[in-house]
Design a binder for these strands. Structure first.
Lengths: 231, 231
DNA sequence: ATGTGTGAAGAGCTTCACAGCC
DNA sequence: GGCTGTGAAGCTCTTCACACAT
């Protein structure tokens, strides 16, 4: 009998993250159990998808009842390696870096900002949110000594690749970059680029697709079924 | 003979966006043609994927030579409906809103910031970047009169759902939200939520997967093939 | 009666390999 | 020789339908 040890499809893993936040809300609201039907409506997916996804984590549900909210949260956090706190560095204290430092939200979700860097002498030593901005010149040493493996890169595009290489050399394994440029990295360092233009273009494209469907089907069923298909 | 009119798979559309930026760079560098091989290396995908993707847009390449850079850009922009400028509103001029307004990058990519709103009296009337911040109270009227259909929502989480409903009522069809909460919208309004926690968690998960592969294959081939597989 | 768990069928995307053209 | 364009095979994920547990 499978015990939650099957390989989790990457698409399932992605969805598991998105289940997590509504589950937190439900727990806060005091809801003890949730059915695949309910969660599916909240997350805008098919109920069968929800059940299939959870089945990879083991037999979490109770037939006729649903899933225990707390149990789900724990199982997901365990499966996704979110069970331990993850320290991260914010590199670049411009508008975006400041936004991250000033809102403590990340801290609730298993992440902990452990360092903030900037190269501007006027910013070094100042306090932003909970952190004191450190000199980017000390980046390698500080990151290595704190064993930080995750960094958010919020520096100008021009210096992003160089700073990224320094981070990788210091032992960082995952970089979330806000610079809209390609960052070449060795195979063992993962980089995700938050490119707003790309995201917005995709958003607009999807809206355009909808319009064409409407235009092509003038006798459409109107505001009929919820059409639980996203992406 | 197919003339670029086949249905484009959604995954292909997503990739087409990501090809666009390196292509801009290549054009700026004065490169006239590019091969699927070169572009594949830059974007970290399989060359066959690149060719297949472009084949949906028609016969763009020249055998033995490659693809015309300018032609590719035009074809992609057309296919993805980026051929006309898209006006957008920035709602909320906090750290993130300011970051968007102060960097003119978006303007180069077919987007044009057409309005900025905030409800803080101290911010209303001030100039940020190229825009003067308008009163969020006038949001519906201004958005409708300018026929804006795309908005970036950068307001506190608590007010995000309410503001989103106002945007939708004013005619906005696509919303990019930075509030890490679910925003319920009618079927014809698309919302993409930039949830940093989710993105970071996915990033960390992928790094963990790598580590396990390394740990499971101690006799691995070392730094061998590029392993052109991402995601 | 209600809602989970899952094998099997189906859909969609990726990879391969090679014909075809420059 | 070099590189595109593409049918076919392969693979992964999604959907369905229903057995089964409470």
């Amino acid at each position: 009998m499978p015990l939650g040890s099957r390989r989790i499809p990457i698409e399932t893993a992605d969805r598991l993250f998105t289940y997590l936040r509504p589950l937190f809300c439900l727990r806060t609201e005091g809801k003890g159990t949730v059915s695949s039907q309910e969660l599916a409506e909240i997350c805008d997916v098919n109920p069968a998808v929800v059940r299939k996804d959870f089945s990879y984590l083991g037999n979490l549900g109770t037939r006729g009842v649903g899933y225990d909210v707390g149990g789900l949260i724990e199982a997901i956090r365990l499966a996704l390696r979110l069970d331990r706190e993850i320290g991260l560095a914010v590199v670049g204290v411009g508008n975006i870096g400041r936004a991250l430092l000033e809102q403590p939200r990340l801290e609730f979700e298993g992440f902990r900002i452990a360092a903030a860097f900037d190269s501007n002498p006027e910013k070094i030593g100042t306090r932003v949110g909970r952190m004191v901005v450190e000199d980017a010149a000390d980046l390698e040493e500080r990151i290595a000594s704190k064993a930080i493996r995750l960094a958010i890169l919020a520096v100008p595009e021009a210096s992003a690749p160089k700073v990224a290489r320094r981070l990788a050399a210091a032992g960082v394994k995952s970089i979330l970059s806000f610079a809209p440029c390609r960052i070449a990295m060795p195979e063992n360092v993962k980089v995700t680029c938050m490119d707003l233009s790309v995201v917005m273009a995709q958003l607009v494209y999807k809206s355009c697709l909808d319009e064409e469907v409407v235009a092509t089907e003038p006798e459409g069923a109107g505001a009929g079924l919820p059409e639980a298909k996203e992406r």
